[in-house]
Amino acid sequence: MQAFTTLTSIVTPLELSNVDTDQIIPKQFLKRIERTGYEDYLFFDWRQDPGFVLNNPAYGGSHILVAGKNFGCGSSREHAAWALEQYGFRCVIAPSFADIFYSNAGKNGILAITLSEAEVERLLLQAKTADGYRLTVSLESNTIEDESGFATSFQIDPFRRDCLLQGLDDIGLTLRHAALLSAYEQKHDTENWLLARA
């Protein structure tokens, strides 16, 4: 996956709470067997509305999305992360994220940042009202800054941060523990009430 270090971009405000993955990528696009080509389907139904924020040319080329709390709730579809990333969003900022989306985002090189409600409200207001409002997000320093003096830092799990900074995939990392896994499995398989088939 693509590494994430520092990003400067116009900010797209999506001022809604509980944005679910059914909206991020509607079901009809889940029938595809490919992992790419989802960019045109991001927020497909909402984009039919000319007033929807992604249709506003002022936010064209934006890589940072700011949204309300509980972003990415609902279905586990990783297609939501694929669509965001392929559309160009590398960073989503919200007061909270649903667990599965948060995990899917990280595995696709998207930095999901949790800030306080007040900070997110401030960013949403700025992005809506200040022309060309930009943020610089640095994962190297765990900071977010704008060009008019706003600066804050964010928390992120150190392991997730490392993976994003280096663009590391998980399977290879897990296979470092192959010897422990083999030993565990040998013992575990004798406990046959836990076998999938008995």
Partner: peptide, 10 residues
């Protein structure tokens, strides 16, 4: 009755 603007919008 929503707490934030984003909640009320929702």
């Amino acid at each position: 009755l929503g707490e934030t603007e984003a909640d009320r919008n929702g």
